[in-house]
Design a binder for these strands. Structure first.
Lengths: 172, 172
DNA sequence: CGTCTAAGCTAACAGCGTTAGCCAGGAGAG
DNA sequence: CTCTCCTGGCTAACGCTGTTAGCTTAGACG
């Protein structure tokens, strides 16, 4: 394991344990037993660490969605992963996608599960992503009134999509 | 106009012109011709300014949606406003909602247009909000691949909703 | 044995939000 | 008129942030 990977590991642990505000260069260095400026021997700057975290988060999310066989279970898996890893989810979606720093294939791999359940329809997959992301993002930001029945909201939203979807074994 | 309102005005202008990174206490004070610590005579801290901006953004967004007669035009108005005021939109939705600082009725007023086009169905309104917010948020964050046909995505998403909606004059 | 590089170090800079404490000017009371 | 008190400025400073410059040490390699 390179020192760079080690840094990103520590950053990820720090992010999940103590929130984005805790991921500072000095704190990171502390955890590694070195001084903050020494980090720059391995990393160009903080934004590079963030980009690495973003890539990692995308891969984790994609992995969590891989097994979902159909739309409802995909939706459930998406929401469950985001709620279990809110900081990683935020960094995965809130940061502008640093495509030039992203390993090739990562973006496509993250999109694959969504594309699968829409039968390869790119437009439908994007609409589905928007829906899932929006619901999760608002929930994480505490924007729905306390007590709002979000299970019902997800069920409602997905039922509409299933109803509109032609699907391989179309009803009727 | 109180000095406090003046501060929030400057903050809003600064936010829209130069982005969230430019809204600093010192820069704010500069624009007003005073020193940064003097701001604290009128405002408890930066977070109070942000909360005021958030409230303002919610009101602006609500106003922009007010005139929309039906779901498609509401969707169009939502997206158009967000794209025209990306910083305000971000501060309106990304920040955890500071309900205790929000003037009463603001949250309800912002929700009203959505509720209207879902015929008062709270669950449907929330699902719709999630959809619209998700699409806008991903677009603003540059998450869709360059060249993606987002008009088509919106059309697709809204068509599904209209199809599923019972509506007053349901299609025979 | 000498040299070069990798990876650490300290000191420092500019900027951030924020606090403490001081001071001028104006309003209101006696 | 004068005294007092409050408002709204000010400067200096603290601790934090990311980052740079420049020095040093340890190890690898010819």
């Amino acid at each position: 394991m390179t020192r760079r990977e080690e840094i990103v590991d520590v950053a990820e642990r720090l992010l999940e344990r103590a929130g984005p505000g805790a991921v500072t260069m000095r704190r990171l260095a502390d955890e590694l037993g070195i001084q903050a400026p020494s980090l720059y021997k391995h990393v160009a700057g903080k934004s590079e660490i963030e980009a690495a975290l973003q890539q990692r988060a995308l891969q984790r999310l994609a992995a969590a969605l891989e097994a979902a066989p159909d739309l409802p279970s995909l939706a459930a898996a998406y929401r469950a992963w985001a709620l279990r890893h809110p900081r990683l989810y935020e960094i995965a979606t809130r940061l502008p996608l640093a495509r030039e720093r992203l390993a090739p294939g990562v973006e496509a791999a993250a999109a694959a599960p969504l594309l699968r359940v829409t039968g390869g329809d790119l437009t439908a997959a994007r609409a589905l992503w928007g829906l899932a992301h929006g619901l999760v993002d608002l929930e994480l930001a505490g924007r729905f009134p306390p007590g709002a029945d979000l299970d019902a909201v997800w069920a409602h939203a997905m039922a509409e999509r299933v109803a509109a979807e032609p699907g391989p074994g179309a009803t009727g």
